[in-house]
Nucleic acid binder design. Structure first.
Length: 456
DNA sequence: TCTGGGGTCCTAGGACCC
DNA sequence: TCTGGGGTCCTAGGACCC
C-alpha cells in the first residue's frame, strides 16, 4: 500500500486530501511513522524526528496513529490477496508476499508459455489493484517476479500506484546498476563496510564473489548478500508464522532519574506485556528487560525461567529483579519488557502457584498499599489526540484537529462527506466522546474483512 | 525540540555435557 | 601427565525491517 497510514487518514478525512499529512509520535520525542507524498516533497520521511518534520513542513497535518482503522483496511486488502492464493505472507499491515503458483491460477501459469503467463500475471495484478481501490479507496503497488527478492524490488519501483514485472532471466540486469542499499538486509552499517571495500553497486557485489563478502560481512549475511546480488533467491513464501516474542516499550517525555519510579514503570510495562501475551494465548520462558539511557546507549538483561509462563506475578517479579541490577546513573529515556521463547500453552507452573499461595498468606498483613496516585474517574482529564475519532451528540462524527488550554477543536466530516467544518469545545464537554473508526466506504458493514468474503 | 515501537535474525563467548 | 572436539543452552549486543 502506498504511504499507507497517511493514505488511510486522507481517505477518512476529506479535508486532508491533496495536503501534506504526517502520522507519527506527537510527543517531544516522537518520530515520523508515515508521510503522505505531499509531505515527502518537503523532505519528510519515515523515522525522521517529528521536530525536524515540523520544521520542514510546518503546515502539514500532524496526526497520531489510529491502528484500529489501519488494521480494518489491512484485513480487507489481505482478504483480496488470499483470493489469489492461500499462500500469503504478510510482512506488516500494508505489505505481503503472495505465491501465485500455490493458488487457483497456479496450474494455468505452469502450463502457459512465457508470453501468455506474463499477460495473465499482469491482468491479475491490475485486477487486484482495481479491487483494492474499489473496496478501500486507496492505491497499492504490485511487484511481480519469480522470487520474493525480485518481487519486493519490483514493488518498490512500482510505487506509487504502479505495477512492475521482472521477467525471469532479467534479474541481474535489473539489479546490477542499483546501489547496494536497494537489497533488503543491507542497511547503513553494511553499506559503509561495503563502501570501504570499494563496493557500491549490486553488480560490484556479484563480481566480488562469495568468499570476499563472507570475509566482510560474516558467514550468513555474506552468503545471503552474494545470493541476492546474483539474482538468486529460493526462499519460499511462508504463511501463518507464529510470533517468536512479545514486547512492550515506552520512551518517556523526560528521562527517569529515580530507582523507585523506574521499578514502578517496569512493573506497569510487564503487566501490559502479559496482557498481550495472554490475549495471544501464548506463554514464554525468557523475560527480557530493555533500558535505553540518557545517552541513547541501550542494554538488555534477560532471565530464562524453568518453564513457560503467562503469570503476571512471575513475569513482573522477574522484570523487576532485572531492573534492580542495572545502573541508571544519568537517567533512563526508555524502558521495555518482553517475553521470548514462546510456547503455545502454559505448562503447569509450580513457581507461579507457589507465588500465589505466598501472596494469599501475606494478604492480611499488607492491606491496600497500591493505587495512591490514581485520580477518581470524575477528575481524570480526558486526552484528545490529533486525528482521533470522536462523536458529538449534536454534530455527529468528526475527528480531533487539536487541543490545548482546556479546549478541543473538532472537524466534522466523514470518509464519504464533503470537507467539514471546525468547531471548538471545552475538553470536558459531556456531549463529546471518543468513537470507533468509520469504514472508508459508505455502507461497508462494520464486520467486513473479519473473515467474510472468503467464500466457503 | 535528536533519534518510536514492534519485531526478526545473526554472532560470539561462556557454561556445561558427553 | 599443559589440557580434544562437538554439541546445546543462555546471555548480550547489533543490524535490519516496516
Amino acid at each position: 500500500m502506498d504511504a499507507f497510514f497517511a493514505a488511510v487518514e486522507q481517505a477518512a478525512k476529506p479535508s486532508l486530501r491533496g495536503k501534506p499529512v504526517i502520522v507519527g509520535g506527537l510527543g517531544g520525542r516522537g518520530v515520523v511513522s508515515t508521510a503522505s507524498y505531499e509531505a515527502r516533497k518537503f523532505g519528510v520521511h519515515s523515522a525522521m524526528p517529528m521536530a525536524q518534520a515540523r520544521r520542514l513542513c510546518p503546515n502539514a497535518a500532524f496526526l497520531a496513529g489510529r491502528f484500529e482503522a489501519y488494521r480494518y483496511v489491512s484485513d480487507i486488502v489481505m482478504g483480496l490477496l488470499r483470493e489469489l492464493s492461500p499462500l500469503v505472507q504478510p510482512l506488516s499491515l500494508d505489505e505481503a508476499f503472495v505465491d501465485l503458483e500455490a493458488g487457483p491460477y497456479g496450474p494455468v501459469l505452469a502450463e502457459a508459455d512465457h508470453e501468455t503467463g506474463e499477460r495473465l500475471v499482469l491482468a491479475l495484478a491490475e485486477d487486484l489493484r482495481a479491487d483494492i481501490l474499489r473496496l478501500t479507496g486507496l492505491t497499492g503497488s504490485v511487484g511481480a517476479a519469480g522470487s520474493k527478492l525480485m518481487a519486493k524490488i519490483a514493488s518498490e519501483q512500482a510505487k506509487p500506484d504502479g505495477l512492475v514485472l521482472v521477467e525471469p532471466g532479467q534479474e541481474r540486469a535489473v539489479l546490477g546498476p542499483m546501489p547496494v542499499r536497494a537489497l533488503p538486509g543491507i542497511g547503513p552499517a553494511t553499506e559503509q563496510v561495503l563502501r570501504r571495500a570499494g563496493l557500491t553497486t549490486v553488480a560490484d557485489l556479484a563480481e566480488a564473489g562469495e568468499a570476499e563478502l563472507v570475509q566482510l560481512l560474516g558467514r550468513a549475511h555474506g552468503a545471503g548478500v552474494h545470493q541476492m546480488a546474483t539474482g538468486l533467491d529460493e526462499r519460499p513464501v511462508v504463511a501463518d508464522q507464529d510470533a517468536k516474542s512479545v514486547s512492550v516499550e515506552d520512551t518517556y517525555e523526560v528521562d527517569l532519574a529515580d530507582r523507585e519510579r523506574v521499578l514502578r514503570e517496569v512493573e506497569a510495562l510487564a503487566a501490559r506485556c502479559v496482557r498481550r501475551l495472554r490475549a495471544a494465548g501464548r506463554s514464554g520462558r525468557t523475560v527480557v528487560l530493555k533500558v535505553r539511557r540518557f545517552d541513547f546507549s541501550t542494554l538488555t538483561r534477560s532471565e530464562t525461567l524453568g518453564g513457560p509462563t503467562d503469570d503476571e506475578a512471575v513475569i513482573t517479579a522477574t522484570a523487576r529483579r532485572l531492573a534492580e541490577q542495572v545502573d541508571i546513573t544519568g537517567g533512563v529515556r526508555l524502558l521495555g519488557v518482553g517475553v521470548a521463547q514462546l510456547a503455545d500453552y502454559t505448562q503447569e507452573d509450580l513457581f507461579a502457584q507457589a507465588l500465589r499461595e505466598e501472596a494469599a498468606e501475606h494478604a492480611e498483613e499488607q492491606p491496600e498499599a497500591e493505587e495512591a496516585e490514581e485520580e477518581p474517574d470524575a477528575v481524570r482529564v480526558r486526552r484528545w489526540l490529533p486525528g482521533q475519532d470522536v462523536r458529538h451528540a449534536e454534530f455527529g462524527p468528526g475527528w480531533v484537529q487539536g487541543s490545548g488550554v482546556g479546549r478541543v477543536t473538532v472537524r466534522f466530516e466523514t470518509p464519504w462527506s464533503e470537507p467539514g467544518r471546525v468547531r471548538t469545545f471545552a475538553v470536558d464537554d459531556p456531549a463529546l466522546e471518543p468513537s470507533r473508526p468509520l469504514p472508508l466506504r459508505r455502507g461497508a458493514d462494520a464486520d467486513a474483512g473479519e473473515g467474510d468474503g472468503e467464500g466457503d
